[in-house]
Design a protein around this nucleic acid. Structure first.
Length: 852
RNA sequence: GCGAAAGUGGCGAAAUGGUAUACGCGCGAGUCUUAGGAGCUCGUCCCGAAAGGGGUGGGGGUUCGAGUCCCCCCUUUCGCACCA
């Protein structure tokens, strides 16, 4: 140990030691309890940014804490290395994606190591390597066998800027999730994964993770899955054998249906209109709607409702009423059945539509007025058909103008009317979901090839498992035109059919990169397995993940896909649980002021507000950078970058370092045990008290991932030690004991934040072999007896206002406190001439005297 | 428009219904120094000379006691956006 704190020297030294000793390598044979600490794997863009530093500082702190508590911690890292930027680089700079990616990984790995992260590098994986994506392909085949992967022509979300297909999740809000370009629709043959089969399970199993996941994330997933319980109802089209099926959640409003409205793409429309004189007009209208839909949709802009009467007539199966059939732009083919019954009185959209085309509006639900009286439901007066409604009332109520159903409550009517429709054969109860199947085809080169071959004779043929991986070619032409560059690589495309050996061609689309990240943390468990994605037993040892840490931008994409993937793997017999991640922490963004403005935005190159982690490390050291990032704000909060803050972190490390330097000779000389050192002075007792209180507090904070308050508590403890006035040369054996106890606790508890400095100081305090040597659980244990306060200052309030303080001990009884408070001179001045109505005594906390 | 979360010093932020502002940044004063953008010490919510009073976006309520719980309003942020 040098007299001065030189971070670069210490950091290099300990990084080398850790590497040599394999300090962070975890093995499943270890008998200690396991802890799987996982951070979202980075995309190898080329450089670490501060968001990464935050993510990995959080994960590393937790991993260190768990190790010091004696857990066998699995803490791996890898690379989400397939994806679009590698192709952009190829197009712009003529570098092959592989070369570009590998170079970036090498650089970023170095940056992560300079940060001093504690990963088990033996387990590093990268999605773009054949030994990884082979298993993406294997999973695809398993799903294909089971009908979970299928191909269909479908309108896909298409980003015109990036020339690629996007999933629903990736085009949320009508814009490309990456570049923000408005998304358009395009028809393409696409591979899909039946995530909708798991919609119900994805909702139901949320129960299992409610305690460990942020409610915010679960809510977004719930909304995304969008379960809607209702019913199908069939409306006969007059003069034909056809029925139009609608979906409704409000069958109780069916007597108020004034029309059936179809989506422009409704499949029955052409057939129904065949002989109609209005055929031409309707076709013209649907054509226009389609064109407008395919036009880029402005997010936030709700289109003017437009429709056309087809002249067809549908019959309401409940009332027998004849209602017109319309086609309108506000009915979506993708949701429900592509047809709705319009009930303008009780649906805002139908109301708008009815207003515009002056369709009749018939009220059939009235507010409940006597809900508390059994059988006493009465419609409010004046609720007949002639009442003109000014807006739609969408709340549940009591049915009116609804034939034999009138007088029933909405929820009862919904149940009974659904049953009635089912019994009569014109409807059924139905639950539908908003979530769509996951489109995984991408017209890209830099992804896992979809292992399918198209044979002229045999049709679509799966690549046999033994032929996996279907490897990407080394070279391709990158034109940026939108077709997969793989289509231009003849030796890739042209193959012989695995079934008939005849001429065939390969599928040239590759998989969405979210496939790679759906199961990567299982691969970490058994990263070099050549026979399976992972060994079931080994994975069962490590998974589920105990703590996952990453940005909440993945709340509905990655985090739904990975839950789905686990359920699918469960059904393949690979894992035994429903949920792969027990606890999730969503960290906030790291923002910086955009120069010349008052705006705080995520650091980015294009805004010029980025901070280079390497420069931080060089200027202040990795320890200070990590410490500051964790101290500056709670992990979920946005973190506004302030350069001066990190200097405070350095100062703190220097102060602790200095104390160790001052005391190290005295402390490393002899180690007495507590019994032999004699009496502790009251100052020493106070120091020990603070130490044990701090241990309890920090331990608790770590369990709740409150890193910022942990650091604050460490600072308080170091301040307390700084205030301890005994000089090393004057210290008695008991003083030395107290100081050692404090310094060692401080150094160990600092390790999750500043591991290099902690190791260095730990060594200087006379310990060989490092903090993690022999897996000892070195985290200090709080002694409640020592943490106990000797003297308490009890506030005395009068009518809730602080008026005096009295001293007491934790043992002072309620009666004694009451008496002492009432006897206090200041209190008496306040109570004199008043009647004491009540005295509230909270032992060890306060006394409140109520006077009149 | 709908839904959710959050509003505490100059700033990042603390506070099981029990002394509001811990810890840090910044700022001020002092000290050491040839010098210091280093270190150390002290101070730092507002009003007031003091006694005391006020104070957690605003208004009301529950309670002996409210930053914390309830209701209304305002602001900000985020999510969803024709989902029948």
């Amino acid at each position: 140990m040098d007299e001065k704190y030189y971070p670069e020297k210490i950091e290099e030294k300990w990084q080398a030691r850790w590497r040599e000793s394999g300090a962070f390598e975890a093995d499943e044979g270890d008998p200690r309890e396991k802890f799987y600490c996982l951070e979202m794997l980075p995309y190898p863009s080329g450089f670490l940014h501060m968001g990464h530093v935050r993510n990995y500082s959080i994960g590393d702190a937790l991993a260190w804490y768990k190790r010091l508590r004696g857990f066998n911690v699995l803490h791996p890292i890898g690379w989400d290395s397939f994806g679009q930027p590698a192709e952009q680089a190829a197009i712009k700079r003529g570098i092959m994606p592989r070369e570009w990616t590998e170079k970036n990984i090498a650089h970023m790995r170095g940056q992560l190591q300079r940060l001093g992260t504690s990963y088990d590098w033996r387990r590093e994986i990268a999605a773009h390597r054949p030994d990884y994506y082979k298993w993406d392909q294997w999973f695809f085949l398993k799903m294909y066998e089971r009908g979970l992967a299928y191909k269909r022509k479908s309108p896909v979300n298409w980003c015109p800027k990036e020339q690629t297909v996007l999933s629903n999740e990736q085009s949320s809000g009508g814009v490309c999730w990456r570049c923000g370009t408005p998304v358009i629709k395009k028809e393409l043959e696409q591979w899909f994964v039946r995530i909708t089969d798991y919609a119900e399970a994805l909702l139901e199993d949320m129960k299992e993770i409610e305690a460990g996941w942020p409610e915010k994330v679960l809510k977004r997933q719930r909304d995304w899955i969008g379960r809607s319980r209702g019913a199908y109802v069939d409306f006969q089209i007059e003069g034909t054998d056809e029925r139009v099926r609608v979906f409704t959640t409000r069958i109780d409003t069916i007597y108020g249906a004034n029309a059936i409205v179809l989506a422009a793409e409704h499949p029955l429309l052409a057939e129904l209109m065949k002989a109609s004189p209005l055929k031409g007009d309707v076709e013209q209208f649907t054509q226009r709607v389609r064109v407008e839909r395919n036009r880029a949709t402005e997010p936030g802009a709700e289109e003017e409702k437009e429709g056309i009467n087809t002249g067809l007539v549908a019959v309401n199966p409940f009332s027998g009423e004849r209602v017109p059939v319309w086609v309108a732009n506000y009915v979506l083919m993708e949701y429900g059945t592509g047809a709705v019954m319009a009930v303008p009185a009780h649906d805002e959209r139908d109301f708008d539509f009815a207003q515009k085309y002056t369709l009749p509006i018939k009220q059939v639900i009235a507010p409940v007025t006597h809900a508390e009286e059994p059988g006493g439901f009465e419609p409010q007066p004046g609720m007949d058909q002639s009442t003109e409604m000014k807006w739609a009332t969408t709340a549940y109520g009591v049915l009116v103008n609804s034939g034999e159903w009138s007088g029933k409550l909405s929820d009862v009517a919904i149940r009974e009317m659904t049953e009635f429709a089912a019994a009569k054969g014109f409807g059924e109860a139905k639950t539908i979901y908003r979530i769509r199947d996951w489109g995984i085809s991408r017209q890209r080169f830099w992804g896992a090839p979809i292992p399918i071959i198209y044979c002229e004779k045999c049709g679509t043929v799966a690549v046999p498992e033994k032929d996996l991986p279907v490897q990407l070619p080394e070279h391709a032409e990158f034109t940026g035109t939108g077709e997969s560059p793989l289509a231009g690589v003849a030796e890739f495309v042209n193959v012989s059919c695995p079934k008939c050996d005849g001429a065939a061609r390969r599928e040239t689309d590759t998989m969405d990169t979210f496939v790679d990240s759906s199961w990567y943390f299982f691969r970490y468990c058994d990263p070099r397995n050549n026979d399976a994605p992972f060994d079931k037993e080994i994975a069962a040892h490590w998974t589920p993940v105990d703590q996952y840490i990453g940005g909440d931008s993945h709340a509905v994409m990655h985090l739904i896909y990975t839950r789905f993937w686990s359920k699918m793997m469960r059904d393949l017999g690979l894992v035994k649980f429903n949920e792969p991640i027990k606890r999730l922490l969503t960290q906030g963004m790291v923002t910086n002021r955009v120069e010349g403005t008052d705006e705080w935005k995520a650091m980015s190159k294009s805004l010029g507000n980025g901070v280079d982690p390497d420069e931080m490390i060089e200027a202040y050291g990795a320890d200070a950078a990590r410490l500051f990032v964790l101290f500056a704000a709670p992990p979920e909060n946005e973190l506004r970058w302030q350069e001066t803050g990190i200097e405070g972190a350095v100062r703190f490390l220097q102060r602790v370092y200095k104390m160790v330097w001052r005391w190290r000779e005295r402390l490393s000389a002899t180690r007495d045990d507590e019994q032999s050192v004699g009496e502790f002075t009251s100052e020493a007792r106070a120091l020990r008290r603070k130490t044990h209180q701090t241990i309890a507090r920090i331990t608790d904070d770590f369990e709740q991932l409150h890193f910022n308050t942990s650091v604050a508590a460490l600072m308080e403890l170091s301040n307390a030690l700084g205030d301890f006035e005994v000089k090393p040369q004057d210290a008695t054996a008991s003083d030395v004991y107290a100081v050692r106890e404090t310094l060692e606790a401080l150094v160990v508890m600092l390790a999750p934040f500043a591991p290099h400095a902690s190791e260095e100081m730990w060594e200087s305090l006379g310990h060989a072999g490092g903090l993690l040597n022999e897996g000892e659980a070195r985290w200090p244990v709080a002694n409640a007896e020592l943490a106990r306060k000797e003297a308490l200052e009890i506030p005395v309030q009068i009518n809730g206002k602080l008026r005096a303080r009295i001293t007491a001990t934790p043992e002072t009884s309620e009666e004694e406190l009451r008496a002492a408070a009432l006897a206090d001179e200041k209190v008496r001045a306040w109570t004199e001439g008043h009647e004491v109505v009540k005295v509230v005594v909270v032992p060890q906390r306060l006394v409140n005297i109520v006077v009149k």
